[in-house]
């Protein structure tokens, strides 16, 4: 009887192994865009790249465009289903994801991770319908399979341009106000995934509004993942509250970063602005290089 039970266990193991090899493991690179006031991106379409640039440009293994709209008329929460659909599609079962986000995409992904990152998800088959929903496999799992995240010009801490009414009031712009953005979800709840922050500093036009170093839309307090508002700069700038340190440590004046937010790129040369310009430009050009190098 004992032998028979052991045999059945072994046989079950063989069956599981066979299923596992058939359900081949695939890594994907998801690109989550930011606010897109000039055109609403094709929601649920994973092959549409006008926000970023040429679809032929390398962006990490098996890259997918997570188009969630980005229009001012809809809030982060109102469009968040498009984020969770993409994560369900490509980051469950045997499949794993690397994720690159830009600007308000930081809020969109962080919101999903904090609110739903520990929920039970249906494992899906990476074959999307037109609305971005993929077929189910019948299995479930807790959370999504995410290796790490690259964030360029992250708006997790909001944009002072929203506070200053440079943009007209709208549901998305309301979310982007600094106090509201920081209240939107627990930014520290990444479920131990590392968020690599890429902070750019070529901003000039709104330097009177954006505190410290900025990329023309986002100041270092946000793009550097600092857990409090303030003016943070590159080393040697005496007119700021403190220096944005690289890595996950506090700023030079002791302001902590959100947990698991680590500054991977600080724009000491003030060479990069915020804008992709449909040509993979600005700070996302640096993120793209990182994805190509590390998202395998």
């Amino acid at each position: 009887m004992m032998m028979r039970r052991l045999s059945m266990i072994l046989l079950a193991g063989v069956v599981v192994a066979a299923v596992s090899s058939e359900a081949s493991a695939t890594n994907y690179s998801l690109w989550i865009h930011g606010r897109s006031p000039s055109f609403t991106t094709a929601k649920g379409n994973y092959t549409s790249w006008p926000y970023w640039g040429s679809s032929a440009t390398a962006g990490g293994v098996n890259k997918k465009a997570v188009n969630w709209g980005g229009e001012d008329a809809t809030s982060i929460s109102g469009n968040n289903a498009y984020i969770t659909r993409a994560l369900d599609c490509y980051c469950t079962g045997a499949n794993w994801c690397y994720i690159a986000v830009h600007s308000a995409g930081d809020l969109a992904l962080g919101y999903a991770l904090a609110n739903s990152g520990g929920s039970t998800r249906s494992v899906r088959n990476a074959s999307p319908a037109s609305d971005g929903t993929c077929g189910t496999t019948g299995a479930t799992q807790v959370g999504w399979n995410i290796k790490w995240v690259d964030i360029g010009g992250g708006a997790g801490g909001g944009s002072d341009l929203a506070d200053a009414a440079i943009w007209s009031s709208s549901p998305l712009v309301n979310n982007l106000k600094t106090t509201a953005a920081r209240a939107l979800y627990d930014h520290n709840q990444t479920r131990s995934k590392i968020l690599y922050m890429f902070a750019a500093a070529k901003g000039t036009a709104y330097s009177g509004i954006l505190p410290g170093q900025d990329d023309e839309v986002i100041a270092y307090h946000s793009s550097g993942g600092v857990a409090s508002w303030g003016s943070f700069c590159n080393p040697g700038d005496l007119f700021c509250d403190g220096t944005l340190t690289t890595g996950s440590g506090a700023t030079s004046n002791g302001k902590a970063k959100w947990t698991n937010h680590t500054v991977d790129f600080r724009d000491d040369g003030e060479a990069y602005n915020h804008f992709t310009n449909g040509t993979w430009s600005g700070i996302m050009s640096v993120v793209r290089l990182d994805m190509v190098a590390y998202a395998l």
Binding site: N27, S55, V61, Y196, V292, Y294
Partner: peptide, 29 residues
């Protein structure tokens, strides 16, 4: 991981597995 160095060094060598995905056929890890 020194993004400053990454940027200064230019694009890392392109990998087949990380390259353009003209088709939807995924590159299997």
């Amino acid at each position: 991981t020194s993004g400053v160095l990454d940027a200064a060094a230019g694009a890392p060598p392109a990998r087949t597995s990380g390259g353009p995905t003209a088709s939807d056929s995924p590159v299997v890890a």
